[in-house]
Write a protein that binds this DNA or RNA. Structure first.
Lengths: 332, 332
DNA sequence: TTGAAAGCGCTAACAA
DNA sequence: TTGTTAGCGCTTTCAA
C-alpha cells in the first residue's frame, strides 16, 4: 500500500543534513540527554527543513512497547460506552497517547481474543469494561500488563485498579425515592453481571422493610432484544408491580417500549427510574427520572489511572445523582 | 511498566526449541513459503509449548507499516458515529485488523494533528469523517496513505474513495413527503458542511415549485448547544413555518427540545422530519418520522474499501429510507 | 557534549 | 525445503 511516494525521511537523513550523529538527533528531539545550544539549533533546523517525523515503529521496537492505550468496551453504539470512550480519548489526547479500541460484545471469549491482539500489538496499558468474571485477565496481568477496569468491579480482582459508579448509593437513592412515593412492589431490571446493583437493591428494600420478591428481579443480556424480552415478560406476568428500576439505558429503553406496547402507562400504572442520564431521557414521553452516572468522567479517570498510576491498585468510586423528571408518581 | 514478568518469548526461542532457523519459524507461522509437514509440526508444537505470540512490533518495523486501520470521527458520543465506528470495527475484526481511533471534534486543526499521529504510528490506512475542506489530507494522500472518506463527500477530492449516503434522494423524499401533506413553508436545519443537503433541499423545493426562502435554511455546528440555538432561533423568529427538516440526530434533538420550550406543538404547529433513525426517535413524543441512514453499514463498507480496494477511487452511495411515524401532519 | 555501534523482533532475499 | 544474514528506524550504552 504505502510505497508510492518517496521514502520516508528517517533520523539518519536528519543526522546527515545536520552533520551530526543519529544519537544526537535522537537526544535533541526526544529532549533526553544534553546538547549544546548550537547543535540543538542545527538539528531542529534540519528536522524542520526535512519535515521529519520520528517513526513510532522504530521507537516502539527499541523500547519493546507500543505506548498508547487499549480500550475494550462491550458496545460502542451504546451511548454510555460512547461517553466512556470519549472520556478516555479526551485524557489520552492531552497525554498524546494513541488509543486502540475494540468491542467485546460482552462476550468473554471475544474479550480474551482482543486481549491477545492488544498484547501482540505491544500495548501495555489497557482500560476494559470486563464482560466475564475477569478470569481471562489473569495471564495478561501476570505478564505485567497495566489494566484498569471501568464500570464493573470484578470479584476477586481487587488488586486491579478500577473506576466504578457508586451502585449501592445509586440503587438506594432510587428505591428510597420510589418507596417515599408509596411504592412497595418494586421490580428491578438488571443486566447479567450487575450483581452489585442487585445486592444493593435487596438491601435497600430490606432497609425499608419491604419484603424481597425474587421474581421481581429480572436479568437480561446487554442487547436490545434481550432487554425487551425481559421487560415485556416482567410487565406482562406481574401486573401487580407499581414501580420499576432499569439498570441501564438499554434496559430503560426496553421498559418504555414494552410498557407502551402492553398499554402500561408511565407513571400512572408503573413508575420508572432508569440508570444513566442519556439525552433521550428528556425527550421521552414522559421524560424519564434517572440516576445519572458520570460515564465520560469514568473514562477520563480510568485513563488517568492507567497512565499515571501504573499498577498500583486503587478503586475510584464515582457518585450518582437522582434527576427527577416525570416518570414516577405516587402509588396508584 | 511492562518489565515485571519474564522476558517475552521471541521467534528465536521458538527456533531453538524446534531446532530450526528463525526464518523457518516465521514462514510456518505466517503461512508464507513452504515447509515440510514434519518441520511444520515441530515449529507449531514448540510455539504452542512456549505460548509464543509473535510481536507486531518487530513485524511492523520490518514491513515499515503498522497494518491496522485509523478511524477519525467528529464525536463518538453521537450515536450516528457510534454506529459508524461499530461498522468499521466489525469489518476490521473479521479481517483481524486492529483499529486506532481518534475524535476530531469537527475541528480541522485537531484533525490535522491526528493525521500526523496516525502517520507517526505507521498506520497506512485511514477512514475519516472529514471535518473541513479536506485540505489537510493532501500531503498524507500524496505520501501514499490509503484514505477513505465516510459520510461526507469532499469537494475536489473525488479521487479519494468514499462512502456517503444518498443525500439528494433523502432530502427530496423528505421534502416531497412534506409537500404532499400541503406544506410550503419548509425549513431546513443543517450542519455546517452539509452543502450537499442544502443544495438538494433547494432543488427539491424548486421541483415542487415552492419558492426558496434562504432565511429558512439555518446552519449550526455539530454540538448540542449550537444546534439548540439554531433551532430555537428558527422557531422563534419564523413562526410562519409549518414544517422542519433536521439534517441529523443532534439537530433533531435540538428541534424537539426547542419546540417544547417554545410551546410549539409537533406535529400540530410544525411537522418534523429528522435525518438518522436513532433508537430514541421512537421513544420521543411524538415518535419522529425520520430519513434513516445506514450508519453501521457505512462504516463497514468504508472498512472494506480501505482494506481491499487500496487506493482506487470509488464512491459508494448508500440509500436512505423514509420511516413514517407521528411527527408530521397536514398543513395546519 | 558527542558519535559509533549494538541491538529490539521480525521478514525477505539469497544461498545452500 | 531450509538456514544465514541483512536490515527496518530508533534508543541507549559506552568511549572518546
Amino acid at each position: 500500500m504505502r510505497p508510492i511516494g518517496q521514502r520516508r525521511t528517517t533520523i539518519k537523513d536528519v543526522a546527515e543534513a545536520a552533520e551530526v550523529g543519529v544519537a544526537t538527533v535522537s537526544r535533541v528531539l526526544s529532549g533526553t540527554g544534553s546538547a549544546s545550544a548550537e547543535t540543538r539549533e542545527k538539528v531542529l533546523a534540519a528536522a524542520a527543513r526535512l519535515d521529519y517525523r520520528p517513526s513510532a515503529l522504530g521507537r516502539n521496537l527499541r523500547r519493546r512497547r507500543t505506548g498508547g492505550i487499549g480500550l475494550l468496551v462491550p458496545d460502542i453504539t451504546d451511548v454510555f460506552y460512547g461517553r466512556l470512550a470519549d472520556g478516555v480519548l479526551s485524557c489520552a489526547r492531552s497525554a498524546g497517547e494513541p488509543v486502540m479500541i475494540g468491542t467485546t460484545g460482552d462476550d468473554p471469549e471475544r474479550e480474551a481474543h482482543l486481549i491477545g491482539t492488544l498484547i501482540e500489538e505491544g500495548l501495555d496499558r489497557v482500560i476494559a469494561v470486563p464482560s466475564g468474571d475477569g478470569e481471562m485477565w489473569v495471564p495478561a496481568l501476570r505478564s505485567g500488563l497495566g489494566v484498569v477496569f471501568a464500570e464493573r468491579p470484578v470479584r476477586g480482582a481487587e488488586h486491579v485498579p478500577s473506576v466504578v459508579t457508586d451502585d449501592r448509593t445509586g440503587v438506594r437513592t432510587a428505591v428510597e425515592y420510589l418507596a417515599g412515593l408509596g411504592h412497595r412492589r418494586i421490580a428491578l431490571l438488571a443486566r447479567h453481571g450487575q450483581a452489585q446493583r442487585v445486592r444493593a437493591f435487596r438491601e435497600a428494600l430490606a432497609a425499608r422493610a419491604v419484603p424481597v420478591d425474587e421474581e421481581l428481579i429480572v436479568h437480561a443480556h446487554a442487547t436490545r432484544d434481550s432487554a425487551y424480552a425481559a421487560a415485556a415478560g416482567l410487565l406482562q406476568h406481574r401486573s401487580d408491580i407499581t414501580a420499576l428500576v432499569a439498570g441501564g439505558n438499554l434496559l430503560g429503553e426496553a421498559a418504555v417500549l414494552a410498557a407502551r406496547e402492553l398499554d402500561v402507562r408511565v407513571p400512572r400504572d408503573v413508575s420508572l427510574i432508569m440508570f444513566d442520564d442519556v439525552p433521550w431521557a428528556e425527550l421521552c414521553h414522559p421524560p424519564l427520572t434517572v440516576i445519572s452516572q458520570p460515564a465520560q468522567d469514568m473514562g477520563y479517570r480510568a485513563a488517568e489511572l492507567v497512565l499515571r498510576e501504573g499498577r498500583r491498585a486503587r478503586t475510584v468510586t464515582l457518585p450518582t445523582e437522582l434527576i427527577v423528571r416525570a416518570s414516577c408518581g405516587p402509588r396508584r
